[in-house]
Write a protein that binds this DNA or RNA. Sequence first.
DNA 1: CGTCCCACCTGATTGC
DNA 2: TGCAATCAGGTGGGAC
Length: 273
Amino acid sequence: MPELPEVETVANGVHQRVHGQTITSVWTSNKPQTFKSRPEEIAEVLTGSRIDRVRRIGKTIVADLIRHPGKKSQPSVQFLVHLGMTGRLLVSAPETEPPPHTHAILTLSGGKELRFVDARRFGRLSVSTDEYTGPGKDPLTISNEDFIALFRNRKTPIKAALLNQSLLHGVGNIYADEALFRAGIRPRRQAGRLTRDELTRLRTALVKVLKHAIKLGGSSVSDYVDAEGVAGFFQLHHRVYSRTGEPCRTCSTPIERIVVGGRSSHFCPTCQR
DNA sequence: CGTCCCACCTGATTGC
DNA sequence: TGCAATCAGGTGGGAC
């Protein structure tokens, strides 16, 4: 599912429903690649911990845990959830049958369950004692100067640079295409050759499109849903993503699809230079 | 180190 | 209808 707006929607939804609750038991599936930390360690750390806060860092959902509620001087522990392509984090009633591909179930003191479901198993669960900061800069808070500096001397196409999580974390294929359209920049342009003006336009467009998408609960392309299983609506505002051959909403030129950095990229050959 | 490309998975859709 | 090929919101590792 998940780029920055979808992950933010899920993290906020989960936070609202579970913060302050204690995890009373943990079940994990037998699919080892889902667990970046050993499943036994995850169960050990989570069981008995209280969920203090759930938030987004990059594309990762981070839950701050209070390990032994009541005791003093807590070592800080975090539960990290990366949704991969098809991961879902759902708050469900225990009597609801867990869907296929459920890989973890956390039973909560409030009576609900927090479930991780992931058909393709590109998602990852882990626990960490070092404060997670993510690989790159957050596109919503980076300054314009720092944004421009990220791309200096890069030979790679701007589309690939936007997807590079060690530069900016949170941008994925949909919002990279949508931001490039709104900035009027073709996906194959060499990142290091974009002008300050173009990069300024790009950052403005990116922030705008991400914030708008967050407001609408993200984009539901095939099966993305938030913590309660509700779809997002930003897909109705896509100007280029997945619109190959359809008329540009600005100039009616058919939208083209090319492959850049191994990912499909959609653009308007008239509006984007 | 920067860049490119593939492997990792299942499921939906497309095409023959 | 059936079956094979293709594609999908992401990343991590190896090759160069």
